[in-house]
Amino acid sequence: MAAAGLTGVPAVASQAQSAVSSTGGAEWITLGTRGGPVASATRAQPANLLVVDGANYLVDAGDGVSGQLARVGIPTAAITGVFISHLHFDHTAGLAGLLGLRWQTNAERPLIVYGPPGTAAMTEGLVASMGPGTTAGYGIPGAAPRDPADGVRVIELRDGDSVEVGSMQVRARGNTHYSFPAGSDLADRFESLSFRFDTPARAIVYTGDTGPSAAVEELARGADLLVAEMMDVAHTVAAVRRNSPNLPPAIAAEMESHLGSHHLVPADVGQLAARAGVGALIVTHFVGIEPGEVGHADYLQTISAAYAGPAVIASDLERF
């Protein structure tokens, strides 16, 4: 195998699939692999499907997630739970549509949403926005009302929390995607989380969005699969400026500071995977030079300078 699995998806997928059995399987499907805030014509925004022992869990729910689920043959009513890493819109925008479609199709069980502080308030707002549509319903006089709030339940998690979900243990750690001062009101109210899913088959760690983080490194130690975000910051800043040429200077400065300090670049990803000793690496939430374009292969070369295991920059709808 070439350094860092440069042969691409098959190298990682074959290793991952070898750990999946019919009685204790765990499959990771990248539904959306494009980081925000600029939408892409070719890739959906961050969302993943984790299938464990036949149960379906979303890990982040970016814009377009319901359509991506349809493309892999999973109806919205078949989702058991959702894990939200943090409250930025590219990771949550698809949740409103998911809740509405589940209401329309009369999903049998409430959807359980696990997420950081603020998830309950966000979800309450989404349910409130469903009021006019659910009240009008299908326009049939005398139809029995169905409260959309009955279709969702929220469990908020904080740094260090652990919860049993189905046949897996899920552990959350706060990461460095936010840098609110310790002890401040905002630090108390909001966290960005990374998750470790210890399933009967294997351990999968999802960074969500983060900068370099000792806590995420500890969380990922010895995992079979690390799913890590990655950005080409200069490329992303240029894309934002093209998309929003009239962005006020103060907001542009905040955006550039955030992108530069709260995300992982290729060298960071390679070092994280190597230090944690993970079995394989999947890069997602990717914004940069696209596959097939000159310079794309340089990202994997940079990762391989630190991490010798199999690695791939994922596309939408790939299975691992």
Score class of each variant (00 low, 15 high):
92 T>H: 14
28 W>Y: 15
41 A>Y: 11
35 G>R: 03
68 Q>W: 01
66 S>M: 08
55 A>D: 15
45 Q>P: 06
40 S>D: 12
68 Q>T: 00
53 D>L: 10
30 T>W: 09
78 A>F: 08
44 A>Y: 03
97 G>W: 08
81 G>H: 05
35 G>C: 07
97 G>K: 12
36 G>A: 09
37 P>S: 09
86 H>V: 03
95 L>G: 03
62 G>F: 01
36 G>F: 04
85 S>A: 15
81 G>R: 10
68 Q>S: 04
69 L>D: 04
93 A>T: 15
36 G>C: 09
56 N>K: 14
77 A>S: 11
84 I>P: 05
64 G>P: 09
67 G>Y: 14
54 G>Q: 08
27 E>W: 12
40 S>C: 13
54 G>M: 06
95 L>D: 08
80 T>G: 05
58 L>Y: 05
95 L>R: 00
96 A>H: 09
57 Y>T: 01
48 N>K: 13
82 V>S: 00
36 G>M: 04
37 P>F: 14
87 L>C: 08
34 R>H: 15
58 L>Q: 02
88 H>G: 03
58 L>K: 04
70 A>L: 12
42 T>Y: 10
52 V>C: 02
69 L>P: 00
33 T>L: 09
54 G>R: 11
86 H>F: 09
26 A>V: 15
40 S>P: 01
82 V>F: 02
38 V>K: 01
92 T>G: 00
35 G>L: 06
71 R>Y: 12
36 G>P: 13
49 L>K: 01
37 P>N: 08
62 G>W: 05
49 L>P: 01
73 G>A: 05
37 P>H: 07
54 G>C: 06
46 P>V: 02
